[in-house]
Nucleic acid binder design. Structure first.
Length: 1001
RNA sequence: ACCUGGGUGGCGGAAUUGGUAGACGCGCUGGACUUAAAAUCCAGUUUCCCGCAACGGAAGUACGGGUUCAACUCCCGUCCCGGGUACCA
């Protein structure tokens, strides 16, 4: 009787489906456990071996918890809206709904092959109207909500309106326009339009202007990814920044709660760190500097600046006439105010054109043009220091000194005020900038500054700092802030690096906004960036009973006339004045974990009963690439729904485990490009010549030239061939036609018609490919399809091998080779029960202590490893167990059936089969997880390693209850130890019970 | 550039709390079984040195320092690779 995996797996997959083995009920007397995977985007490329890694891990854990007696929810679905399907539609004319459906069918087939325990009755699809109805509904609640900072929670906007009517906005300043103040009377005096304008600036989902990458030639907005070297990736057309009306989520209102929430969830420290840094909460001050441009009239003595509005960075309402400008910076280190040697403003800063001196104007304009040609990504990644002096000076409010104002791309417009005060002795980037441009550096920290690099210490006693001299920096911070506030030239300020989340896309394949623009044309975008977009129209929510607002069918996916989304071209849509933007990819994924709990509910997004039963996701598995996007958004939505009392918990995920990426291991061939006579080049064009990787290493040498010449003469059978120059190009080759690193040349010739008559320059008779570890991707020909492996080795082997590859949380390159070993393990397990010739060999004989010891040792290790997600060592423990039982020729049912149970989460099919074959009733899926009997594991002695000065020299078997004295006596009597001591006495003997012994001499 | 993770044999990796570095598996080498192959089983496999051999010695966890009786593990610095950096998902 052989281990026939394909029959077994087919049989049990059918059986489990038939029996509804994976259906999950919303009420059970068992404790609940919710295991969730980050659902996939159903890409056209299908699954590669990297996808299932996390799913297998979660599947093992879900099955393990089920064996442990939990009611386990383990659902799956698809994040089905997104850019690739739309791009595919543009390229191939296939509607995204159609390609998405096909892709999902394919995904499902592939997933089913692997034998997951998903409850498919609960599948969610974000692109289904029955699902996005509720995405739209939640959006409407956000639109109709505002954040009450007094109560620290979201409230309905109607509640705000009542307050504004009663008391104006003095207790609830407007987050979108902090300086706006009005009384109840003023509020009542505003017309409807103005009131709506103001409310927009309170809403949690609001409209504003945002900069996008605009490509005129493609007539579309591009993602940062799609912009390379300042031009579009497709076509290489110029890309500029353009302001468009956008929707935003006011996630910044939740910044503090998103930070606090991290304390009560079980995420990795790295993950918490990343989110914390992303939110980037900092404390400091905004400081306003007067600006003076030589050649223009100035405001005179800084001390005489009138109180007025404390902070303003615009000249418009600054008294003092033309030329009187002010620059506001944000700093976390106001204590260094006397060390400010220059100011830097972002190239986008609106003050630049007003303050630039006539001498510097041309240089500034050139610099700004240069910055515009660079993508955001490049600006950040640039090591090179660039900048330009504006010709203007800021006046240090304390010293009265003139400080040059520079522009540089390392200051970003979106952070703080878009301007900084630079303190080169205390900040590394400022230091490098000062050095590069020869700006003199003021030392305010004495010996802490060595003149060679900046020192960001807060411990130094300040020098050259007037009234701060002698004060330790960290104490000076608050002194300066108080002084700033006293004099009305600054305020204390908490700043967040995180910005509000852009929530609209000028695309087709996403959720439509349930918004109608009333009283005007929504496409009117003010030319000069006025505070309010679409001034003549008012965003009005659709009635909730009219949801879902279904995405209309379109034939073309091009952008609208003003760069709006494709919906702007749909006459019926624009006739109703519906919003033409759609929601971004992360909308649907921000709450899908709730829908799984109650997927078919038509009355609410998820009943309170269901969400109270399932509560938080107990285990969430997904990649770190979502660390700051999806995870923050979904955490915010959860908190919002909690504020509205729609759900009873305010953190979606109790525990998060990040699976690593499985990287592709790419293979390369090297095509030789010959330069020589026309005849040679012609020949080489018709007959591509490839050189083996190892030979290529001697590139440029005469040896290579000779080698290639000889080879080419040989190939073309023409001894007269002369080659003037050799180059080669590195090309990806499909990993599936490479055996290890050796190219299967016959398959290669068939791979592409142009290679049909390829010739090879071999090393030692083989063509060796180049190797590089890269992201797994179709275009790199390094993807490995799980289906092939499942067909060849079975799902159980595949599952175990993916786990055996290494720690789930670690990224590692894929290598198919080792899969044989895991397959051998399962066959070896099978042979504990059945013999090929003899058939059944399992018995009901009495189990020996030695056999029990192996069993319980294995259970203990496997359970422990499964519990802590160390699946690779778990598999290893199971292998060791089977090896040892095989060595003892143990075929006893009592041992084997317990082994089968603990293996079930990893290899469910073969375990179910064996479970039945040894005569058990019911399914192994619900078998009780065996308890470890510790009595078989008790040891009385240990083989201690004996180290001399920390280096292991010998071993000794010593009783575990030995005392220090006993151990010392035994050790001193040992021959090896004596030899090392050479008659002397040891300085010390260190004895760590159950660990080791170290003799120090 | 910034944030974050990683670097251990020919390869994937193990070493859970500072305590025998290389578990388990792949590959490779040799052997057994077989007409042969597959399958299976046995032995060996970090590098270098000495030696007939057993035993033995030295080095060794990216690199350079440090702490400690003891460091893959902790600290300081450097290099390299992956992920993220706000419109890929």
């Amino acid at each position: 009787m052989e281990y026939n995996f394909s029959e077994i797996e087919k049989k049990w997959q059918q059986q489990w489906t038939k029996n509804g083995s994976y259906k999950v009920s919303n009420d059970a007397d068992k404790p609940k456990f919710y295991v969730l995977d980050m659902f996939p985007y159903p890409s056209g490329a299908g699954l590669h071996v990297g996808h299932p890694l996390g799913y297998i891990a979660s599947d093992i854990y879900a099955r393990y918890k089920r064996l442990k007696g939990f009611n386990v929810l383990h659902p799956m679905g698809y994040d089905a809206f997104g850019l690739p399907a739309e791009q595919y539609a543009i390229d191939h004319g296939i509607h995204p709904a159609v390609s998405t459906e096909n892709n999902i069918k394919n995904f499902r087939q592939q997933l089913d092959n692997i034998g997951f325990c998903f409850d498919w009755d609960r599948q969610v699809l974000t692109s289904e109207p029955s699902y996005y109805k509720w995405t739209q509904w939640i959006f409407l609640q956000l639109f109709k909500g505002w954040y009450d900072r007094k109560q620290n929670k979201a409230m309905p906007i109607s509640d705000l309106v009542q307050r504004l009517e009663a008391e104006g906005n003095k207790h609830h300043p407007c987050p979108g326009e902090p300086k706006l103040r009005f009384t109840a009377e003023e509020w009542k005096g505003f017309d409807h339009r103005r009131q709506q304008e103001i409310l927009m600036n309170y809403r949690l989902a609001y409209c504003g202007l945002g900069e996008v990458n605009w490509c005129e030639a493609l007539g579309t907005v591009l993602a940062n990814d799609e912009v390379v070297n300042g031009v579009s990736e497709r076509g290489g057309f110029p890309v500029i920044k353009k302001k468009l009306r956008q929707w935003y989520l006011r996630i910044t209102d939740y910044a503090d709660r998103l930070l606090e929430g991290l304390e009560k969830v079980d995420f990795s420290d790295a993950m918490k760190e990343m989110q914390t840094n992303w939110i980037g909460k900092s404390f400091g001050a905004e400081v306003t500097f007067d600006v003076h441009t030589p050649g223009a009239p100035t405001t005179g003595n800084p001390a005489s600046v009138p109180g007025g509005p404390a902070v303003s960075d615009s000249a418009a309402n600054t008294p003092g006439g033309p030329g009187a400008h002010r620059l506001t910076v944000y700093t976390t280190r106001p204590d260094t105010i006397f060390g400010v040697d220059f100011m830097v403003v972002a190239p986008e800063h609106e003050l630049i054109e007003k303050i630039t001196s006539s001498e510097q104007r041309q240089a500034v304009e050139e610099y700004i043009a240069y910055v515009k040609s660079r993508s955001e990504r490049e600006r950040m990644a640039e090591k090179k220091i660039t900048g330009c002096f504006t010709g203007a000076y800021a006046i240090n409010p304390f010293s009265g000194l003139q400080i040059p104002i520079w522009i540089s791309e390392y200051v970003l417009a979106g952070y703080g005020t878009g301007a900084i005060m630079a303190v080169p002795c205390g900040d590394d980037r400022d230091f490098k900038f000062a050095q590069h441009f020869g700006i003199p550096i003021t030392n305010i920290i004495g010996d802490y500054y060595n003149g060679k690099e900046a020192n960001a210490t807060k411990e130094a006693k300040l020098q050259n700092s007037d009234f701060l001299d002698g004060i330790v920096m960290k104490d000076a911070i608050v002194i300066v802030i108080n002084k700033l506030e006293e004099r009305g030239i600054g305020i204390r300020k908490t700043n967040y690096r995180m910005r509000d989340a852009a929530f609209s896309r000028q695309r087709y394949w996403g959720e439509p906004f349930p918004i109608v623009w009333q009283g005007g044309e929504q496409s009117e975008v003010p030319e000069h960036g006025g505070a309010q977009p679409g001034q003549s129209s008012i965003a009005t929510p659709l009635d909730e009973k009219d949801l879902p607002l279904e995405l209309p069918h379109v034939e073309k996916y091009g952008p609208g006339p003003e760069g709006e989304g494709p919906l702007a071209n749909v006459a019926s849509w624009t006739a109703r004045h519906l919003e033409t933007n759609t929601m971004p990819g992360y909308a649907g994924s921000s709450w899908y974990f709730l829908r799984y709990m109650d997927p078919h509910n038509e009355d609410v997004f998820c009943s309170r009963q269901a969400s109270d039963y399932w509560g938080q996701v107990d285990l969430y598995i997904g990649g770190t690439e979502h660390a700051v996007g999806h995870l923050l958004y979904s955490r915010m939505w959860t908190k919002f729904l909690y504020d509205l009392d729609q759900i009873g918990h305010d953190e979606p995920y109790k525990r998060l485990v990040n699976q690593g990426m499985i990287q592709g291991s790419s293979r390369f061939v090297y095509r030789v490009e010959l330069k020589g006579t026309q005849e040679v080049e012609e020949l080489a064009r018709k007959t591509p010549v490839f050189i083996s990787c190892g030979l290529r290493a001697i590139e440029g040498t005469p040896e290579l030239h000779e080698l290639v010449t000889m080879a080419v003469r040989n190939i073309f059978n023409n001894a007269a061939i002369e080659i003037s120059q050799i180059a080669y190009s590195q090309l990806h080759v499909d990993v599936n036609i490479v055996d290890g690193v050796e190219l299967e040349t016959a398959k290669f010739k068939k791979w592409r018609t142009e290679y049909n008559n390829a010739e090879f320059i071999l090393e030692e008779g083989k063509y060796i490919c180049g190797v590089e570890v890269e992201k797994m991707s179709k275009s790199k020909f390094n993807t490995v399809n799980p289906d092939d492996l499942v067909n060849r080795y079975g799902a159980d082997t595949f599952r175990m091998y993916e786990m055996f590859l290494g720690p789930v949380e670690q990224s590692k390159p894929w290598d198919t080779k080792g899969i044989e070993g895991v397959h051998r393990f399962l066959r070896k397990l099978w042979r504990l029960f059945f013999d090929e010739t003899k058939g059944r060999i399992w018995t009901t004989d009495k189990v020996t202590d030695a056999e029990f010891k192996i069993l319980y040792k294995t259970i203990k290790k496997a359970e422990d490893d499964t519990e802590r997600f160390s699946f690779n060592t778990g598999v290893s423990a199971l292998m060791i167990g089977v090896n040892e039982l095989t060595d003892l020729k143990c075929h006893k049912k009592e041992v084997l059936e317990k082994l089968v149970i603990i293996l079930t989460p990893y290899a469910p099919h073969v375990c179910e089969e064996l479970w039945q074959l040894i005569g058990n009733e019911g399914s192994v899926l619900d078998a009780p997880y065996p308890k470890v009997e510790e009595k078989y594991l008790v040891e009385s002695a240990k083989n201690y390693p004996i180290a001399i000065n920390g280096k292991t020299r010998t071993e000794m078997n010593i009783a575990l209850d030995a005392t220090q004295q006993q151990v010392e006596a035994l050790v001193m009597a040992d021959e090896v130890v004596k030899k090392w001591l050479e008659g002397g006495a040891p300085k010390k003997i260190i004895y760590v019970k159950n660990k080791m012994i170290n003799v120090v001499i």
